[in-house]
Write a protein that binds this DNA or RNA. Structure first.
Lengths: 248, 248
DNA sequence: CGTTCCCTTGAGTAGTTTCAATACTTGTGG
DNA sequence: CCACAAGTATTGAAACTACTCAAGGGAACG
């Protein structure tokens, strides 16, 4: 199947992908007009620009940034399989920038194709809609964790979320995953300073919960980390309390 | 027009509503199966339940709550004209609770009607999709403000956002608006304690930026408040940097 | 082989929470 | 109509979390 659908086969894997018919899966792959290999720091989409295509992340990581008062704020981290700027199809202009971290491979889908899908394939349309609302659910969880948790819990929570999301698409090992972020990136994601982030990383390492070296997150005891972070993966819409009905 | 479309006439007013045809406007109104007057604290929709209809908020306010570790966290505040649980149509189960604050009037739209719309009216479908992604954009701004701002700025930012959103639907005066929240509600929205919220409200009042008494927000100088909050309304997709093209 | 990021550590300060105590409001039933 | 209860609002003091300023060490890249 991977050979058949080389670019779109990770989309919603482990979640709503199971509800796609073979025809829909092939249509999704066929919508791709072009692919590209991007290097670190490439801008996929810029705030305020009119969007004419959307980008499927095939490999690598992408950050959603909002700049305000000269500071960068990371509001979401995208992983392989994510349709990173599908929001731009309905919003027409994005409120944030999309930037790669590390090398990334992407596939572009022109908005004319999405328009055609909306007219012809309502079920696939609804699945695409779902994918954008999954991002919104993740946003809400982030708001909650910013409201509730201290910086060390927030970092632990982020590491837990990324493990699950990468695990859905087969990019996580039982004891960790690759992650090309700097401590500065993590600080901008958790709403703290790089100095404080550095101390927190040390604290979690000394507690034996998680080891972070640039490029790799190592989690010796995931259950302990999730408990510390007060993390439950339900909001990612895999299994759990919010699991989807089979007749979606 | 209000007489013709008594329940749906505020939907996306001041934003994408202008792109709806007369036919689409009437279709939206016709999708409503039922209306209800709810009292304070009514639960519109509960986390984890299968959704079979979505709710248009005609009058009043609704909170989106996530409970975690015994604490309530408010992740969004909905105002009249908002399609408060349209997310439930694509997500099938919501990740949060929807609860009224103060008396509210709502209109229900069965999901069969939305399914029919998806099959018959792709443009209206896209407008509905847009409405859900507007929520996502607001979520992102909240993440950014939680990452960046101190509690006093956050509260000011919230008051600014609500003024603009209420102004879109004609529910704001130049110098303020009605808002039936308690200081506890505001604290749970800004991610702080009610004690600290109380001190912050006093501080903003003494600074002459905003007066809050239960039921009413008074803003003597909106420009000064917006500057203090570092607020720009672009992310609400009215006018401004992210304004929508006329051919949506 | 130097420049540029990135990481690390210390000390003082600002912002926020917690605990504790008291008053004000609002709605309810006698 | 008053009394009471429950929720809401206010204030002070101590403890904690995180930020800023400052300075140095390390790694990666041309």
């Amino acid at each position: 199947m991977d050979a058949e659908l080389p670019f779109s086969n990770l989309f919603l894997r482990g979640r709503l992908r199971q509800s796609l018919s073979k025809e829909e899966e092939h249509r999704l792959e066929a919508m791709i007009s072009e692919t590209a290999d991007l290097k670190d720091g490439s801008i996929i989409s810029r705030r305020g620009e009119l969007c004419h295509r959307s980008t499927l992340l095939v490999d690598g990581f992408v950050l959603r940034n909002i700049n305000s008062n000269g500071k960068r704020h990371i509001v979401c981290i995208q992983v392989p399989g994510d349709f990173v700027d599908l929001h731009g199809f309905a919003l027409r202009r994005l409120d944030h920038d999309l930037v790669t971290v590390g090398a990334a491979r992407v596939a572009y889908v022109p908005h004319e194709e999405l328009n055609r899908t909306m007219e012809e394939l309502p079920h696939l349309t609804r699945v695409l809609w779902f994918a954008t609302l999954l991002d919104a659910a993740i946003h809400r969880e982030w708001i909650m964790k910013m409201e509730q948790l201290t910086a060390d819990n927030r970092l632990a929570h982020l590491f837990c979320e990324l493990w699950h999301r990468l695990n859905f698409v087969g990019r996580a090992d039982p004891d960790g995953y690759d992650l090309p972020l700097t401590q500065i990136d993590l600080a901008d994601t958790c709403g703290t300073t790089s100095i404080h982030m550095n101390r927190i990383i040390g604290k979690l390492r000394r507690m034996g919960l998680v080891e972070f070296k640039r490029g790799r997150v190592t989690i010796p005891d995931r259950q302990a980390l999730e408990q510390f972070a007060r993390f439950t993966p339900d909001y990612l819409y895999g299994d759990g309390e919010l699991h989807l009905p089979s007749d979606f």
